[in-house]
Structure formats: C-alpha cells, structure tokens
Amino acid sequence: MSDRKRLLTPYLFVLPNVLIFLIFVVFPAIYGLVLSFTKWDVISDPVFVGLKNYISIFSSESFWDTTRKTFIYVFAVVPWTFVTSLALALLLDMKIRLRSVMRALFYIPSMLSAVVIGVSWRWILGDNFGVINYLLERAGFKSVGWLTTPSWTMFVVILVSVWARAGYYMVIFLAGLQSISSVYYEAARIDGASVWQQFWQITLPLLKPTSLVVVVLTGIEAFKVFDLIVVMTTGGPGKATTFLVQDIYRWAFERGDLGYASAMSVVLLLILGLLTAVQFGIAERGGNAYE
C-alpha cells in the first residue's frame, strides 16, 4: 500500500459518518442559526430582521416563565434520577436473590417509548378514568386532580420522568460499580470502616467519572424533554408543564414563526452548552479520586 493510500484510507472509512453528520446535524444547525435572524412562516419567503427575535425572547415574560419551569423540572429530575438509579445499582450489585430478574424489571421502563409511558400514566392518573382516583374513591377518599392541579401535575411529570429513566442510568452505575476493585473495600473493612464510610469514602469518589456522565446526560435529557410531557399533560394545565422544547415546537408549528422558534433553539443550545461546561469545570477542579 502506497503512503498516499495509507493516508487516505482512514478518512474514507469515516466519510459516510461524517457526511451523515454534516447533512443531518451541522448544515441544519447552521441553517437554524441563519433562520433565527429572520421572520419566516414557511409559506412566504424569510425576511431578515436582525436581532429582533432575540430581543423579543429576552423581553418576553412567557419565555422567562417557561425557562423558570424548565429549570425547576431539570433541578428536580436530575438529582432524583441520580439518587434513584444509584440506589438501585447499589442494591442490585449485592448478592441478593432474583438479582437478574430485578435488574431486568427496573430496566424495562427505559425500553418503552415515551408515548407509551405517557399514555399509560395518563390512564393511571386521569381524573375520571384513572386507576388511582378510582381506588381512592372506592376507599372513601376524594379524588385528586393529578393532571388538573398545576402543583400536582409538575410533581407527577417529575415522578414519571424519574421512573422512566432510572433503570437506564442504573445500568451505567452498575458498570461503574463493577469496575471498582474489591481491594479498596477489603482494606477499608480491615481498618474497621462501616458500610456508610465505605460508601462515602470509596464508592462515591470512585464513581465520579460515571456520576459526571449520568449528571450530564440526565441534565441534557431533562432540558430536551418533549414527547412524554406532550402525551401526559399537553403542557398543561394551562402552561404549567410547558417546558422550553414544547414552547419552541408551539412557536414553530402552531404559531408558524420559524424564525422566533429557531432563535429560542439557539438560546436553549447556549444554556445547555453553558451548564455542561460548568459541570465539566466542577469535575475537573475536583481532580480524579485515588489517582
């Protein structure tokens, strides 16, 4: 093989992937950025409006309200998912009976589509047809407006989101736990460390890279939540559970303002980029445990 061929071969191998990435990710992203400076309803030609969309976004009360609710959702879903999936991983890392069955059971929700999850929980929590309200009424209690009272609705969408994804992150934590050498625990036990001390001093520090991945992934996933919420609550009651991505969708396809919706997407991208950078920054500052 000539030197030139040897040089070109690896690039040729990655070319299909690069092309797909460019066509379906990079070019649309650039086009979206360009659109964010226009007013475009799809049917007429786009009109350049400069920074008007960005100015409208930042001066819109509705945008800040939606952003506030999105942050509430993210800051609830991320720690809950983290704690739940870590707890499940710790439990199922022990040598207990039916361990494999339980691992599979906890993982099942993450294999279901968000639409199936949303519809199922809608039937469980519905006001008039919901199983839980039916049972409550049969037991002599008043039914609860799970999907019609703003505070309850926010609570249940957070709960369902955690339920849906905890199994997936449990598997990631299990992989992390199994990569920790048993030598550390043996040494700790000889030194008389309690189970809690072992967890705080060994498990958690050594799970730091895995934890960072879980926090970043759940954070991004929570910011991008759309289908589950639309199916479960359609963003309601009112706009109580309308988060940023659904709002972008409404601007683009219900109000037909692609320019404004593109500008909102750019803002969301900046928020995600900033938060991810902060997370990596914090992780870097802490250094790697036991290096």
Binding site: G126, D127, N128, F129, G145, L147, T148, G236, P237
Partner: peptide, 19 residues
C-alpha cells in the same frame, strides 16, 4: 369537568361513556 380544559381529557370519551 375540569379534566377537559385543565387536564386534556377527551370530551368525546366522557360523553360516549355516559359520564
């Protein structure tokens, strides 16, 4: 019922179910 305008419940279903 508040479940229609606040909870997205289908009014057709409620009527068809005799509720």
């Amino acid at each position: 019922p508040r479940s229609i305008w606040l909870g997205g419940e289908n009014p057709n279903t409620l009527f068809r179910a005799g509720l």
